[in-house]
Structure formats: C-alpha cells, structure tokens
Design a protein around this nucleic acid. Structure first.
Lengths: 163, 163
DNA sequence: CCAAAGATGAAAATGATTGTCATTTTTATT
DNA sequence: AATAAAAATGACAATCATTTTCATCTTTGG
C-alpha cells in the first residue's frame, strides 16, 4: 500500500498531547502576532486546525470544515493562510510521501511521527537524545538549525493491521 | 529565500563519500536484481544517477542527462523507472521543501542532510547515536522501521553565504 | 527466430499549489 | 460614525510535477 492519506482518527494514547481548547481571543491574538488582519475566514481556519480528533489536516480538510461555516470561502484563501501560519511558526507543515501537505497547530508539543506503510497508522513520539544530537550536529557543521523533518516509516506489528 | 533547488555542486569535503564508478555489468545486474528488463534507457538512467558532482538529482536532471544519449527518451520513462529504483531500494528519494523529488543512488553510504535555507547549500552528515535511537523508538512502539526521513534546516554561518 | 511479457514515447489527464485581478473588508484615523 | 489606504477575499486561470493511457516497439526465454 502506498501512503496517500492519513488514517481517519487517532486513539488517545497515540497522541503526545490531547487537543487544547483555544478561545476566540486566543485566536485573534495569534493573528495580531502575525501582523495579519482579523477576518472571520482566518478565525474559522484556525478553529478548524484546532478541531480534533484529526490533528494533521490538509488544505482540503480545512476547506471542507470551513465551508460549513463560510460556504463561499475560496480554496486560495485557505492555501494562502495555511502557508502563512507555517511561515510564522503557528503551524508546522507535514509532508509525508506523495500526500498533500498537512498542517498542525504548534500549540501541541514538539514530536515526530512513525507511519505504518501498510495501514497508514500514525503514532507520535518524542526523543530527547535525538533532539540533543540535532543541536550537536548543527554546532559541528556551523549551522544554526531552525527546524527539522524527521519521520519514521515501517510496519506496525499490530494484529489488527491489514497484512 | 524559499528553497526550490539544490546548489549546482558540492565541495568534496561536504560529501560523505565520493562518487563510485559503476561498470556496465554492475548496472546490468542491478536491473536483473530488480527483475526488470535490461534496456539502454534504463542503463543510461542509472549512469546518469551515478554521474557527479551533483549526486541528488531530479527526474528533470536525469531526463536532460539521458537526452544527450537518447534524444527520444520520454519523460514518463524516466519517472517510471526512478520510482521503481526507489521501490527496489536502489535509490533513495529526497523530498525537500516544495522542490521536485530528488533521487540518489544508494551505493553511497547512509547519511542525512543539512540544508541552508538562505543559500541552498547542502552538507551531509552521519550520526550513530541517532541511528541507534531510531531503532529504539521502533522497538518501543512495536514497529519494524524500514526507512526514515531526516533533514535539518537552518542557516550556514559561512561568510560567503548570502545574508 | 518467435511469441509472450514487458518497456517505451507521446500526449492527455490529474491534482496540488500558486498567481492574477477586480471587488470587498478591515482598521487606523479623522 | 465616516473614510481612505492597505490588506484580504473569491473566482478562475495558470503552473508544474507526476501519472495514466495506449498504440507501438524491444527484450528474452525457449
């Protein structure tokens, strides 16, 4: 199986941190901190990003969620704004395999993913030793590391995973 | 600067391992090990992959190199075959930022990349501690890890890097 | 040499993402 | 509250990497 989409949901214990509730004013100050104007569309997009249980969402996912509230919203608006959130560090971009880019609000703790290439299951993990090594590698090569991509792929050894 | 292409060349000391020369019969047995028929186009693509100094090449790069020898080769042939090489583990796919997929022959030693997001410079590195942790993470989460993506992004602190 | 099985090239299709631009909204300032 | 400048929006076209399709050609085992 080629991974082209993520699983529909996650069980709670596979998430590093449960979904956080963000108030309207939280969201507004997010926008202000980005020096962007506060619009209903943007608030709605941020709300969509913060809506569980699926926390890594594509522009299409967001578009669908927001369309319910704003039936006229354009695709470009969603794309444009998602890109800006990542530019401003509000979200992180997940680019796994050939699937469309996924966005995730950075209110969640820093973590990485293990992807099962058979069933598409995603499990999150954290590893301090790796984070320390990343800092060391940066120092050794005289780079200021700003961010990193780190994804593991393999097979989950679950009995319920498709063979 | 948004990274959309890699730098034209590498200085020797930034490469984990210099380019290896592969003989025609090496290449042919590669193809046989993939259970694929031996065609001039495929040999030419493998040669292109093995031609330095740029070791991470896009389908377009390969297409251009091979076109010199086979002016009629189709883009689809290149894409199709590159994808197969990666499926068979002959190459690894590099997907950095929004740039087109890059392929790299796996005759080179396993390594990762640090990408300067200002000037596009790429430096390769190896880190045993991280490799060990990857194994550990897989074990801890009951996954058989088959491969991983790991790329660092930041700024190279070189005086010659564009500010 | 011959007949599958497989590979190729040309061109169209796909699908995510981006660009354009006329219109509308936000917001700081009267 | 009215207003003007700056910014955002939506519709839609354009890009661009990658895939598909399919009719034609090659490879390869017998």
């Amino acid at each position: 199986m080629e991974i082209t989409e993520l699983p529909k949901g996650y069980t709670k214990d596979e998430l590093i941190q449960p979904q956080t509730k963000l108030s309207e004013s939280n969201l507004k100050s997010m926008l202000r901190s980005m020096n962007l104007k506060v619009t209903n569309q943007r608030l709605s997009i941020l709300k969509a990003l913060n809506k569980g249980p699926k926390t890594h969402v594509t522009a299409k996912d967001v578009f669908e969620r927001v369309s319910a509230e704003y039936p006229n919203i354009g695709f470009a608006t969603v794309y444009r704004f998602l890109k800006e959130t990542s530019r401003f560090g509000i979200t992180s971009e997940l680019r796994i395999g050939y699937a469309p880019t996924r966005y995730e609000l950075k209110v969640r703790e820093h973590h990485h993913h293990i992807v099962c290439t058979k069933c598409g299951k995603i499990v999150e993990f954290q590893n301090e030793i790796i984070e320390d090594q990343i800092k060391k590698v940066g120092k050794d090569h005289n780079f200021s590391i700003e961010h990193h991509i780190f994804e593991l792929y393999g097979f989950c050894n679950n009995p319920n995973c498709c063979k």
